[in-house]
Write a protein that binds this DNA or RNA. Structure first.
Length: 447
DNA sequence: TCTGGGGTCCTAGGACCC
DNA sequence: TCTGGGGTCCTAGGACCC
């Protein structure tokens, strides 16, 4: 590996990662996840070129290997591949997310039998920290093969395993395992000779690196950074100057300095979205209201599912951007809530009031949705803030209430102040914050 | 009262991921 | 005719305060 360089204040963990026992990450990723799930329950689909379609059967959100080989891109609209489908007999299936969610938990269950140090990164991918369980096996490659076989035997799903000393390298290894048959589904870039690794890096486009998308790849290419190896040779400091701290971190990760940790416990969501496209275009406010109400109900369920409250709600409606000859209307409105809540009725009322403001007759809408913001991972504020106050109206009690706020909500409450008639506080969620005011008279009566 | 500079807050928007 | 539904993090720039 090239010289490591200093990581500076950016990454307090890097030193520990590189100097203590060497961390080793394995990324286990199910091949063509949705397609593979469908095939388990319909074995006749094995080897049949097929796609799984999005909501309303709009786009291909999963493609079998045969379809990928035909050059069909992720997200291709089904109606655009009709000719190809006829020619090659491509089968299309509607998505069944309940099934996929269930299969996903089964995979995670199998992986947990290898190590509890597991991060379920997405519905079809998990990171495992494997350095501590490695002694029981010949080497990491053997462990990878056993994981792969175990998942296959237990769930029927095919996976590839990528192994490396950082998450980014494990991702890269996984990519190689998927693309190149000679790895037999398991690739460990850590045990490779440097020459071989550099060879693979030279042959792999820089855009394949985790965190490098279309835009950045284009800019990199313009500077003659075309392969992963080119990026490996670039100076992280220079990359930071141009592309920011995320890119710098990525450079270190590629060099084998782990900057991204395993997140075993999923943090609570900072934002919850519920939205859908309509099967056919919608013009009436009543119909929009119905769908908005459903979305609020779903979002509120998710909110309560993570034991949170929200301080702000956004409603949006959109016409179909693909219909360029139709008048377009994209509108949203954000409604602050008097108090953070997880109550469906309160949220629905706020959303419908918002919808009333942004709705305009005469447009044909394609999509509606709601977003919950300023989420706090604590129980309802109104209750917990003042439940300990025994009488109200005296400044000593106000002060106690403020202490309570700070004790209970810690750094999510930025400031708080009280006068004789009201209290005000400012709550933070992520990097957003909002002010709240509640009149003293409105406070819940003490026990 | 005038002035400048630094810090923080807040928002919009871009880029990325699956 | 038919074009997904979620999420995250970072940055820049203006407002505001001291």
């Amino acid at each position: 590996m090239p010289a490591a360089g200093t990581v500076g204040d950016m990454n307090p963990n890097a030193q520990a990662a590189s100097s203590s026992t060497n961390t080793l990450f394995a990324l286990v990723d199910v091949n063509n996840f949705y397609v593979s799930c469908e095939r388990i329950f319909q074995p006749k689909l094995e080897d049949v070129p097929m796609v799984v379609l999005s909501n309303n059967d709009g786009c291909a959100v999963a493609r079998s290997a045969e379809v990928k080989a035909l050059g069909v891109k992720m997200g291709t609209p089904w109606f655009q591949m009709q000719d190809l489908a006829k020619k090659h007999g491509i089968q299309a299936y509607s998505s069944n997310y309940t099934l996929y969610g269930d299969m996903s938990s089964r995979v995670a269950q199998v992986l947990r039998t290898f190590t509890p140090n597991l991060e379920v990164y997405s519905i079809d991918e998990s990171f495992l920290k494997i350095e501590s369980v490695l002694k029981q096996y010949q080497d990491a490659l053997e462990l990878g093969q056993i994981i792969k076989q175990q998942v296959k035997d237990t769930t029927g799903l095919p996976v590839c395993v990528g192994i490396g000393v950082s998450k980014t390298l494990a991702k890269l290894a996984n990519h190689l395992a998927k693309k190149h048959k000679q790895f037999s589904g398991v690739c460990d870039v850590n045990s490779m000779e440097k020459e071989e690794l550099y060879q693979w890096m030279t042959e792999t486009a820089v855009g394949e690196v985790w965190g490098i998308g279309k835009q950045i790849a284009k800019k990199l290419n313009a500077q003659n950074v075309n392969s992963v190896f080119d990026l490996l040779q670039a100076s992280p400091q220079a990359m930071r100057q141009q592309f920011g701290v995320v890119m710098e971190r990525l450079c270190y990760e590629l060099r084998g300095i782990s900057c991204l940790q395993l997140e075993e416990v999923a943090p609570v969501k900072q934002q919850i979205i519920a939205s859908r496209s309509f099967g056919k275009l919608v013009s009436s406010q009543v119909e929009l209201a119905e769908s908005v109400a459903t979305h609020v109900a779903r979002a509120a369920e998710k909110l309560r599912g993570q034991n949170s409250t929200t301080g702000e709600l956004t409603v949006f409606i959109q016409t179909n951007p693909f219909k360029q000859n139709e008048p377009q209307h994209h509108q949203s409105i954000t409604i602050p809530l008097a108090d953070p809540t997880d109550n469906t009725l309160t949220l629905t009322n706020a959303a419908l009031a918002g919808l009333k403001k942004i709705y305009e007759a005469g447009f044909r809408y394609k999509k509606a949705g709601v977003i919950l913001n300023l989420i706090s991972d604590k129980p309802t504020m109104q209750q917990s803030l003042f439940e300990n106050i025994e009488t109200k109206g005296k400044s000593a009690h106000l002060m106690k209430a403020m202490d309570d706020i700070n004790n209970r909500f810690g750094n999510s409450v930025l400031r708080s102040a009280a006068t004789g008639t009201k209290r005000e506080w400012q709550m933070r969620s992520g990097n957003k914050s909002r002010n709240y005011t509640t009149r003293w008279d409105d406070l819940p009566v003490a026990r």
